[in-house]
C-alpha cells in the first residue's frame, strides 16, 4: 500500500518537473532566438549588398585589365580615376582589398592558387576582397618557389 502511495505522489511531481523543464526550454528558446535575431539582423545589414558587390568585383577586374592593356596615357588616367571612384564607393559599403604583393608567402585563408608550385606568390592574377571582415573573394595568385 505504502509503495503504491509514494508512486502516486511521485507521478504528479515528475509531471510537474517535465512541465517546468518544458517551460524553461521554451523561455530559453525565445531568449536565444531573440539574441540570434539581433545577430542575424546585424549580418543582414552588413551583407545585404554582398551579391551586388560580388558582381561589382568583376567590373573592378575589367578596369584592371583595361589599365594594363591601355597604351594611351590620357585614357589610362581617366579609367584609373573612374576605377578609384568605384573602389571608394564600395569601400564605404565595407569592402576592403586584400593587401598582397609578389614575393609574399601563400596563405590559403586569403589567397587562391591558380597555378604553379611552391609557396611564394609570383603574380597576382586578380585582387581579393573582404566585405565587413568576411572573405568574399580570395586573391587569385600564381605561385613559384622563388621570384
Amino acid at each position: 500500500m505504502k509503495e503504491k502511495d509514494s508512486d502516486k505522489e511521485k507521478k504528479p511531481e515528475a509531471q510537474a518537473e517535465e512541465y517546468l523543464a518544458g517551460w524553461k526550454r521554451a523561455k530559453a528558446d525565445l531568449e536565444n532566438y531573440k539574441k540570434e535575431e539581433t545577430q542575424r539582423l546585424d549580418s543582414v545589414r552588413k551583407f545585404a549588398c554582398e551579391s551586388l558587390i560580388s558582381e561589382m568585383l568583376t567590373v573592378l577586374d575589367s578596369f584592371n585589365f583595361a589599365l594594363t592593356s591601355s597604351k594611351d596615357e590620357d585614357t589610362k588616367k581617366g579609367v584609373l580615376m573612374i576605377k578609384s571612384q568605384l573602389e571608394e564607393a564600395l569601400k564605404r559599403s565595407g569592402l576592403e582589398k586584400i593587401e598582397v604583393k609578389a614575393g609574399d608567402k601563400f596563405d590559403e585563408s586569403l589567397h587562391e592558387a591558380m597555378e604553379g608550385d611552391g609557396d611564394k606568390i609570383l603574380e597576382i592574377v586578380s585582387e581579393g576582397y573582404k566585405l565587413n571582415g568576411k572573405l568574399i573573394r580570395a586573391a587569385r595568385v600564381r605561385l613559384g618557389d622563388s621570384l
Binding site: F106, E108, S109, E112, A113, G116, D117, G118, D119
Partner: peptide
C-alpha cells in the same frame, strides 16, 4: 595537408588545391 604542414578543411583546402 597544406605546404605549411597544417591540416585544413573546406574552403581553405579548396583555395590551395591547385598548388598542392
Amino acid at each position: 595537408i597544406s605546404k605549411a604542414n597544417e591540416r585544413i578543411a573546406g574552403l581553405l583546402a579548396k583555395n590551395q588545391a591547385v598548388t598542392n
